[in-house]
Nucleic acid binder design. Structure first.
Lengths: 103, 103
DNA sequence: ACTTACGGTAAGTCTTAGCTTACTATTTAG
DNA sequence: CTAAATAGTAAGCTAAGACTTACCGTAAGT
């Protein structure tokens, strides 16, 4: 699973802030950078990481680069956590049965 | 929501490795460190971060500190992603309607 | 009691990654 | 056609955090 990149991407608070900004609407880079306490190039670098993690998509309109959420990566993370917890329950159940048998 | 700590915690690849080890069964610190390419104290430090993020729990048995997954933090992350995507869809829908009206 | 195993904390080092400034390219506006 | 606006990349700095060694406590076994 390559949720690895996604977890890594959302591990940074600034990237989470950008991510949550894009929840409201797709935005151009300048708009994303507006309000954030870092420079515009720094934002570009964060966007690159989020894009490679498949958490956001790029759509170019003229000279504007519009970024928007990418359903794919977000649901992949959700599914990872779902499966993770399900598998954990399975393992714990198997472990409990084994311990029981061992008596 | 303080999934912030959780996302931060899982942002590190070593901590993800520890997290996934604990998926199989609860383990003592020495067992967790076994196989990992870092020292035992380093593992302790990672465990502290995971614990503060409510992703794992500590259970002391004699001189053994047994760590195990914490349902609370894991489901909190899952719910965060769920709600995040649902809200995004709502926003996009509202945005589309507004744009339509504007014609 | 003494020793061994477990494991958390402190202090210090060093690498990584996040940031800035500077530069370049492209596109739209006037 | 020139100017202004958008945005990505490069190079270099710096601070954060991941790691190590050393140390200390506590519990269990002999």
């Amino acid at each position: 699973m390559n949720s690895n990149l996604a977890f890594n991407a959302l591990g940074d608070p600034t990237r989470r802030a950008i991510f949550e900004k894009l929840q409201h609407r797709p935005m151009a880079v300048v708009a994303i950078a507006d309000g954030l306490p870092i420079s515009r190039p720094a934002v570009s670098q964060h966007l690159k990481v989020l894009k490679e993690a498949r958490l956001i998509n790029l759509r170019t309109v003229g000279n504007n680069n519009i970024y928007e959420l990418n359903r794919e990566g977000i649901l992949a993370m959700r599914n990872y956590l779902d499966k993770f917890w399900d598998d954990a329950l399975m393992n714990f159940k198997a472990l409990a049965e084994q311990t029981e048998k061992h008596k």
